[in-house]
Design a protein around this nucleic acid. Sequence first.
DNA 1: TGACTTTGTGCCGCTACTAAACAAAGTACG
DNA 2: CGTACTTTGTTTAGTAGCGGCACAAAGTCA
Lengths: 408, 408
Amino acid sequence: MNGKATTTRTRLDRGRSALGPALELVHTGRAPTRAVLTAELGVTRATAGAVAAELEALGLIRVDSNPGAAAGSQGRPSHRLAVDEKGPVALAAQVHPDGFRAALVGLGGTIVATAPGSVVVSADPAQVLGAVVDAGAALLAESGRRCVGAGLAVPSAVAEPEGTALNPLHLAWPAGAQVRQIFAERVREAGIEGPAFTGNDVNLAALAEHRHGAGRGARDLLCVATGHRGVGGALVLDGRLHTGSAGLALEVGHLTVNPEGRPCHCGGRGCLDVETDPLAFLTAAGRVPGPEVSLLQQSRDLLRTSPDDPGVRVAVGELIDRLGLGLAGLVNILNPDRIILGGLHRELLDADPERLRAVVADRSLWGRSGGVPILPCTLDHNSLVGAAELAWQPVLDDPLTALSRESV
Amino acid sequence: MNGKATTTRTRLDRGRSALGPALELVHTGRAPTRAVLTAELGVTRATAGAVAAELEALGLIRVDSNPGAAAGSQGRPSHRLAVDEKGPVALAAQVHPDGFRAALVGLGGTIVATAPGSVVVSADPAQVLGAVVDAGAALLAESGRRCVGAGLAVPSAVAEPEGTALNPLHLAWPAGAQVRQIFAERVREAGIEGPAFTGNDVNLAALAEHRHGAGRGARDLLCVATGHRGVGGALVLDGRLHTGSAGLALEVGHLTVNPEGRPCHCGGRGCLDVETDPLAFLTAAGRVPGPEVSLLQQSRDLLRTSPDDPGVRVAVGELIDRLGLGLAGLVNILNPDRIILGGLHRELLDADPERLRAVVADRSLWGRSGGVPILPCTLDHNSLVGAAELAWQPVLDDPLTALSRESV
DNA sequence: TGACTTTGTGCCGCTACTAAACAAAGTACG
DNA sequence: CGTACTTTGTTTAGTAGCGGCACAAAGTCA
């Protein structure tokens, strides 16, 4: 029943057009059974069955004829759809100031294997990415699974279409490094099949949260996060990352949130960047940051150990007000239907969710915008999973050609 | 060859799927001949021919077998594709503080007939919209052409999905008026066929400019304009208006552009709204606005009559700097590949384009963003044409069902 | 145990396309 | 002036995807 994909096939003939959407439904967990797959795709049962069979033949999903527990509903129990645990994986990688991490991520966004990287301090991206890719290649060899491609998350804006890292924060890399090209070269040299992609870590975190985390079901998802220094933003529209025309959208760090604030290198003063990042928090709390662990970790520790310290409380309130002002500005411009916070911003939200929501509601127009849900990130290693999403995307778009192109 | 559209047709069977894209290509002027239609659609000549024939049978376009001037190229001259001048039209309407305007807009965004409205001062939207629709109905009757639907542009944010006007600027309407519903009722009562739509005027202007004006070909188009009071923004992504989850996106008026600026009703100070609108311009130029004509007209007159007046020059420079700061903020967030300015902002751009571009380049990150083209609006009555686009949209999406549904 | 409900599957036909061969309508050039 | 060439339109045949339908399968409910 399979093996008929060798017929004449031309540019616009994308084969079975429902194949991609169907795989995406399974991938995002929205099609647990063939019955709901039928409903979600809006096709007949016959078509849905054929599509599922084809995806199974491709080794991507499994159709479980044994329903197990029938959930108590009437009628014939539906066959369950699940990701094939022996199916292909994507190689995901992430570099950050404390080191790197490589992982294999299967369909559905599950991390299959991971290799926490030791610190590689080098001003040469090629060297660092070489180590990252080697770790990933080792994981791949160990698992013996097929690879659909590789994705890399970097803590820097990535300019399109060149794929250069414009501000590799605290990586000691030169600004403008050709990370995408370097990563792709290393991937190819390591003999890893499939295309290689590179993206900003906050962007990729947002993508991952949208598909597998707190952002599921949102149409316009705004994600704001601060890691060690600076603030990053991301926007997912209709399930696709909005990176703007040059990949530089959602550079939200320089919204003015405090007219009397400290000066910023951008030329303004009181920018979100310098007013709500971990350094701002520590100084507002009257602490002198030490050099041993990351500023984010120090902030977290401080919040956890002495949440009732007067200085900490003041700092939390101050940063929440500033962050709220920034989020309100973004709400006025983007009008998202959900906001997700990561890093220190997530901690601030946890510390006093009511206050943050109140500020956003107060300063965004049309009171009803105050109803925007603001949620914390829920996924572990969301940037990593998001990097894998990049690699999976071609398969999700068109499983047939993506998988057949690779075997060539 | 026609009349076969009465066969069984179900939810997902959208008939000839290339029909909509083909019509859109003709509509936006990107398919002057059948040959380029073939290329743009990425189909065979046979298919393109059939699609064109079907659109002609629907009375939407004309296939000109007489090529006229063959443009000097080699090979057989291609048949020209043109909008059918006897084809259906959309009823477009616009209300503004100085009155209203109704028009018939054909495919391609050409205004076929127009009725400049006398001033209707009324706090009752139903009364005003009744007069607008009546004027439109008269135009329709006079033209004798079929109507695909109606669109209305209002100078107010329109909340989705209810379609209420949240801040009907200077219309004396109550905030929260159900404009969409009221307009739809009046349209139905007037016996006008087709669905009725309502949108914000700046949003619709952006849509029109994107399809027929200065925004043609842009993928991420940002439009900023100020009419009489306040500033409006709009974003067109991939050819579709981005209105956000509640229709309130691009409320750009409250970006901070002057930390020491005048207070704004939003709670902040130095907002784009109060710093770059006509009132701000007139006061910065040391003029006392009179009540006779609109503030925008007074500003234009002042710019035209005494551009070298010292006060005017200072005011122009000041407002350009403020506007540039606001645009830079938007560039950092949205990263558009083109910016279009309307109303007074357009006049400011014309007055000193270099200065505005320099400010935007200086204050948006990654110098290359300074390369964002900033252009003036080019379309007359772009909000009106945009309103018509709303009405045309169902036809562009699926000509077959949209036109057949109407005749029922 | 039988009626009912829901899900999966085989078969038929429709339709929107591609492919390929041919026809048409012009230019380029001897 | 006529022939070769180039590009465009048209006809015909063939194919793939999917809807519609009838039937089978697998459970629940009385």
